[in-house]
Simulated assay, not measured.
Amino acid sequence: MLSTDQIYQLQETLEAAGKRREAAAIALAPKHKGGEWEEFHAAVKAELVAERALAAAQNQAYAVPVELPVLWDTGAPLPHLLQNDYQAFLIFFVRDADPSWDGSSVNIRRPDSPAAFQLAVVEFKGCVSTMMGSPNDEVLHGHPLYGKGLEGYRPMRIENSAWIAELQRINSVHDGYAPERWRRLSHYFFGFHDVTFECVAESVSVDLHESSLPEVLAKVCERLLR
């Protein structure tokens, strides 16, 4: 347990990080001298680190990045959710990595297209519960975890999850309730352009496919039916 002085120091660190991020954002407006974007990204990262440190010290829920080999565009990755009573699969288009793209064209993806794209199949094993829908990225700053390390467009894990605690309380009335099982669960958060996906599960893994979305969805359905 941290002392009051230590908590105050963390609060001061977060306040200073916020001011640095604001100054870095202002510096992006005039004619650039070089290094402005690098400083802005570094300032944002420092603020996120400070947010997580303070929330952890106060035993509050906070978000940390999950190291998965997949990112998605800020546009429309078209996430699809398929699940049964213990498995969940999240399928979406991954970020384009064309080094020759100059920003002058847009690659339109249709979910029913037979063309092959790179798609992520994220499997959540030992799935207990899922949510998919609001908020979108335009109102992510209204989410209760915003300001506590939350980032969009990348996989996140929620530490000190209130959702897991709530589910555990509900299930604690069962005759076969086993507290150790709930300690194995993690709360995952995926923020997309139009929707947010959240899941409580034992583990997560990713497979990448170069295929059409209908083909990948059919393969995932086969896995669910085994």
Rank of each mutant, 00 (worst) to 15 (best):
A23K: 13
G152Y: 09
R223D: 07
E151T: 00
K148I: 00
H209Y: 15
P135M: 10
W163F: 01
C127S: 11
L82G: 10
G133C: 07
S113K: 01
A16V: 03
L68K: 08
Q60F: 06
A55W: 02
N59E: 13
H41Y: 15
F40G: 01
V106G: 08
W72K: 04
S161M: 09
I108C: 01
V122H: 06
G34T: 15
L217T: 11
V206M: 03
P144D: 07
D194M: 04
P114I: 01
S212D: 10
R184I: 00
H209I: 01
L145S: 05
G35E: 07
S211V: 00
A218R: 07
N107H: 13
P144F: 10
L71F: 14
S203E: 15
R21V: 05
G176P: 03
V128F: 02
L150N: 09
E39V: 05
Q83A: 12
H187T: 01
A27N: 14
F89A: 01
A116K: 11
P111C: 04
S186E: 07
Y62F: 15
H187E: 07
E51G: 08
P214W: 06
L185P: 08
F190V: 02
G149H: 05
G34D: 09
I158K: 08
N171T: 04
A61M: 02
Q118K: 06
H141M: 04
W182F: 14
Y62I: 00
R95Y: 05
A63Q: 05
Y177F: 15
S104N: 11
T4L: 10
L81S: 02
V139C: 03
R157I: 00
I158D: 11
P69T: 05
P30C: 08
I91Y: 13
L28W: 01
A115Q: 14
A43K: 04
A88S: 15
W37I: 04
I164V: 14
S113F: 09
R21N: 05
S105N: 04
H174T: 10
T196Y: 05
